[in-house]
């Protein structure tokens, strides 16, 4: 009896936790070598046409406040450590979304001497959003899919 009670409690707690996380993903944006194309599209998702705040997404300035790290661009030598550091500053649980072809695969910049590679060579990535650049709708879709995958867990 006691066991099942705690189990119920734990289940309820877990479902509250999932609910809160899926409904309040605060994001932080890091450009590790992008051409700006993805960055302006990410910014566009906040603006009236797309309005990501509908889903509770707020772009935060401090990594300490953020749950989702949105990365754009291939990782350059110079920004590799900064990307890692930003990721490490985020409190758990945390998720990473790679936005754009370069972030997912290196894109046209693959093979350039200043480029280390794609995002998941440096930090683990939870969702990939391809496109050059992906449309704001695609970015929203990617974030929503990430949230849905959390719910299933």
């Amino acid at each position: 009896m006691a066991l099942s009670l705690t189990e119920t409690w734990q289940n309820t707690l877990a479902s509250i936790k999932t609910w809160a996380f899926t409904n309040s993903p605060w994001a932080i944006h890091y450009n590790s070598g992008s051409c700006n194309g993805c960055d302006i599209e990410i910014l566009a998702t906040l603006t009236p046409r797309y309005d990501l705040e509908r889903f509770g997404v707020i772009l935060q300035g401090s990594p300490r406040h953020a749950d989702v790290l949105i990365c754009t661009g291939p990782v350059t030598l110079q920004s590799r450590d900064r990307l890692k550091r930003t990721y490490e500053q985020m409190p758990d649980p945390k998720f990473v979304v790679a936005v754009g072809s370069c972030a997912t695969s290196g894109g046209v910049f693959l093979g350039c001497y200043g480029v280390v590679g794609h995002i998941d060579e440096v930090i683990p990535v939870n969702a990939y959003i391809p496109g050059c650049p992906p449309r704001p709708e695609a970015i929203i879709d990617g974030v929503v899919k990430l949230l849905q995958s959390l719910q299933k867990k």
Binding site: N31, G33, T76, Q78, F109, C112, G114, V115
Partner: peptide, 13 residues
């Protein structure tokens, strides 16, 4: 230089 990718070199290849 955080976005330094090395494109000028890449154009030659």
């Amino acid at each position: 230089g955080y976005v330094h990718r090395g494109i000028e070199r890449a154009t030659e290849e």
